[in-house]
């Protein structure tokens, strides 16, 4: 026997810790030398025996853990819950029913849980109805000039499940439809004459006001084009830097709102991000607020 039998090597082989070349060498030696094979197998038998004993010991430990765990009521509650939710395998549901026939106390317990579950569902419906009322109250606080609202269509007699679906959509429409978001962040500017300074071009001032009117009327595409035009003209006006900056900020934000209304989130996002990234911008906070809402789940539901 040329290969030296070492129990440490065989233990590493048994545990799969032997390097690939060492493993190959050992296996080759086992193939070529019967004595080596017999020796290795004898050690492996012992090591397997130890592992089996270790597993028996672990199994016994689990039995004691199981004894502790199965004394808890949560086992039965979980089973009853799965039964009431009709989630049990038919064979196990049948076992449960047979057991209830034999054990009136269990049958009574199942009935009690059923009542409790129904009560929770009723409570949940009630809570949801309360929330709907609250949303409605909130929504009435806002002006509603831009769009027609969906909530008129919500039927009082709709089932709870239907209400959940409609209610979710309704809530989203009420609070996250693009029109509503625009309305929420939009502030009508002061007229150029009041905004602080004398603007030479009366025509520009008039167009500025008319364009804002277009935005307020929901004529977004027209407003967007008109804001772009006003921006181009702004630099040629004889206006001091302070006022020019004020109009510039107003036009940028208003144009982004018009873009959102006309072409949706993807079109408006770059402009809003540019505003939100400028801490000096008058509309920085509003742009950020709007971006947060555009990224929300509710916006996706509503639009």
């Amino acid at each position: 026997m040329s290969f030296e039998i070492n129990p440490e090597t065989i233990e590493a082989y048994h545990q799969g810790r032997l390097s690939r070349p060492d493993k190959a060498e050992l296996e080759q030696a086992m193939q070529q030398d019967e004595q080596v094979r017999i020796e290795v197998q004898a050690y492996l038998k012992i090591l397997d025996g130890f592992m089996a004993k270790k597993e028996t010991s672990f199994h016994n430990q689990m039995k004691s853990w199981e004894k502790e765990a199965s004394n808890q009521d949560s086992d039965q509650i979980a089973l009853i819950e799965a039964y009431l939710d009709q989630e049990l395998h038919p064979a196990n549901a049948a076992r449960m029913e047979a057991q209830m026939q034999r054990d009136p106390q269990l049958a009574e317990e199942v009935q009690q849980y059923k009542k409790l579950k129904n009560a929770f569902q009723a409570k949940q419906s009630e809570a949801f109805a309360e929330r709907l009322k609250a949303w409605e109250t909130d929504s009435q606080k806002h002006k509603r000039s831009i769009s027609k609202r969906l909530y008129y269509r919500v039927g009082i007699a709709a089932s709870f499940v239907l209400l959940m679906g409609i209610g979710t959509n309704w809530y989203a429409q009420q609070n996250y439809a693009a029109n509503h978001l625009i309305e929420e962040v939009y502030t009508k500017p002061l007229s150029p004459n009041i905004m602080g300074k004398k603007v030479d071009q009366a025509a520009w001032s008039k167009q500025f006001e008319q364009t804002h009117q277009l935005l307020q009327n929901g004529q977004f595409a027209e407003a967007q084009n008109a804001f772009a035009e006003l921006s181009q003209q702004l630099s040629s006006l004889n206006m001091n830097n302070y006022n020019q900056q004020l109009y510039q900020y107003d036009l940028e934000f208003s144009q982004a709102l018009a873009l959102l209304g006309a072409n949706g989130k993807a079109a408006a996002k770059p402009a809003l991000e540019s505003i939100a990234q400028n801490p000096a911008h008058d509309y920085q906070e509003k742009a950020q607020q709007l971006l947060d809402k555009l990224d929300s789940f509710w916006y996706q539901v509503a639009n």
Binding site: E66, A78, L79, A82, E87, L88, H89, P90, N92
Partner: peptide
């Protein structure tokens, strides 16, 4: 323990 047991009580005919 609980998730494992419930999984197989729901998906198989095996009893508790």
């Amino acid at each position: 323990r609980q998730p494992f047991r419930l999984f197989f009580l729901k998906k198989t005919q095996l009893d508790v």
